[in-house]
Design a protein around this nucleic acid. Structure first.
Lengths: 124, 124
DNA sequence: GATACTACTATCCAAAAGGATACTGGTATC
DNA sequence: GATACCAGTATCCTTTTGGATAGTAGTATC
């Protein structure tokens, strides 16, 4: 009963540490909009109303709130141009690039998951 | 004004598709607990109260709800053993392995992000 | 002078997520 | 007979998230 404990690679401690790291990540990235927003901005700087159009069903209030949080966490930089009327752009920071792999794996997974769902519907 | 449009690699359409894929993924994985739960189970089958102890601050109600949702989405399998008292284990399915890269990137990002925060506190 | 565009903010509200606390039935232990 | 463990449920509540709708100031257009 105790002999096989040694074989286990993931120790409970390592597991707890991983849970902690994932929770740290989610603490900053959680919610419906943060990661989609980062993807939307990966095309280059965009203005408020442009982003709203890309994300389709986000309201200005939510968009404003989410952008502020992304700014606070240094994922996004806000720039104001004194054109007439004033234009404001939002763009990704260098630090946001650290999320590239995360976002890309999530995107790939989303694609295959949708395929799986569609196929299982067809089979059923 | 229109001449430079050709140079852009990420077309707005590709960008919208990526936003869609990420939103598809988040639709299933969103929330405070789903991914941490999957990580907690990556050690092998665990019983209800064991999981609760690993995740520390999850209440049984939330844990029960999250496990049901993970079961519905075929990430987790529930097994009942008619021991006395009855024991129930939860374990990851083969499909949940498709999340390995996602989870791993998120975990790595979480680790480096925490380091960054700690360092910036020290600098400030 | 009405309308529209810019980038938002304000107010109110609904729904979901999350959480505290208590409790259930069955068995086993003290 | 009291207590404790198992795997949850039940009830109530707070917080967060999200959303609908309207409105702001300034300019420009029709």
């Amino acid at each position: 009963m105790e002999a096989q404990v040694q074989q286990i690679e993931h120790s409970p401690e390592a597991c707890k540490a991983s849970v902690g790291a994932v929770r740290d990540a989610l603490y900053v990235l959680n919610g419906k909009w943060k990661l989609p927003l980062i993807v939307a901005l990966s095309n280059g700087p965009q203005r408020f109303n442009d982003i709203q159009r890309t994300l389709v069903d986000i309201t200005p209030k939510i968009l404003s709130k989410e952008l502020k949080e992304l700014e606070l966490n240094e994922f996004v930089e806000r720039k104001v141009f004194s054109t007439t009327p004033v234009t404001v752009t939002y763009q990704l920071t260098a630090y946001s690039q650290s999320l590239n792999y995360v976002v890309d794996e999530l995107r790939k997974w989303g694609v295959q998951h949708r395929e799986r769902i569609v196929n299982s519907r067809r089979g059923a």
